[in-house]
Amino acid sequence: MSLLNIKNLNVRFGDATATPVVDGLDLAVDKGEVLAIVGESGSGKSVTMMALMGLIEHPGIVTADALVFDGKDMLTLNARQRRKIVGKDMSMVFQDPMTALNPSYTVGFQIKEVLKQHLGLSGRAAHQRALELLQKVEIPGAAQRLDAYPHQLSGGMSQRVAIAMAIAGEPKLLIADEPTTALDVTIQAQIMDLLLALQKEQDMALVLITHDLAVVAETAQRVCVMYAGQAVEVGQVPGLFDVPAHPYSEALLAAIPEHSMGAARLSTLPGIVPGRYDRPSGCLLSPRCPYVQDKCRQQRPGLDPKAHSLARCFFPLNQEVA
């Protein structure tokens, strides 16, 4: 029984006829597992997780056959019940820490707010716990930092505070939406190390949305590759990285600079992600796929088991079983 089970998730903006931003996505996350979601900008990675958290606002429409977290279907809960879970058992760290914290309140206030909301802590107990959380995310001089305002913190510090807020309710699932993209390269590794240490220590599941395949290779147990709102390949990390079944996964891996060592140019996939008005009727990758065949242009493949992974492709690569 997995911790999170998403079946046929669709997110549209506008009305029911609008092109889905997330298109029939199936995804499961086990307890204590690290799952990475990778894909180009606009492929629906963040929107998927925002839908799970209930953060999609009008005019967004979220539908799914199932959106089960920890045995509860998030879609059938009312807003009040959902708020008991969101921010506590399931929480999220966002991309840009410099704008994710409220500039008008101190760090302490913003952490204690979570403690009060979900654990009913206030006064000394909340203060003590907030201090512990800051120490846990390795903020130097934690006691003084409680009274600091966000503009007095660096990007890396702000992200640590955001992480402290996210783990305040001891979540079973932490979603990190490109948590290091907006940070300096030197800080990125520190934040990743922190997230993974916390994940192990608290035995929580971690969904890591990222562009950084090197990070995925080092940290994740499984990876979900998204393209144009669909999961195109889902598999174990060593397997998918060594023998990608989907041409898009292969192209993503080929685009890592280290893989083009010695070549004059970086390997790229020509073309762009199909937009609202030019979605192909067949496989969504068909206009860009180097291996495209007639069938790909006419029918849309499903996400089916292949030799090493689940892939959405009629003619998967690397299918010889070792």
Binding site: L55, A79, G87, K88, T99
Partner: peptide, 15 residues
């Protein structure tokens, strides 16, 4: 529209 309002909602605070 600010990010910190999204953060606040992600904390499970009341509207």
């Amino acid at each position: 529209r600010e990010d910190y309002v999204r953060t606040a909602r992600a904390k499970g605070l009341s509207p």
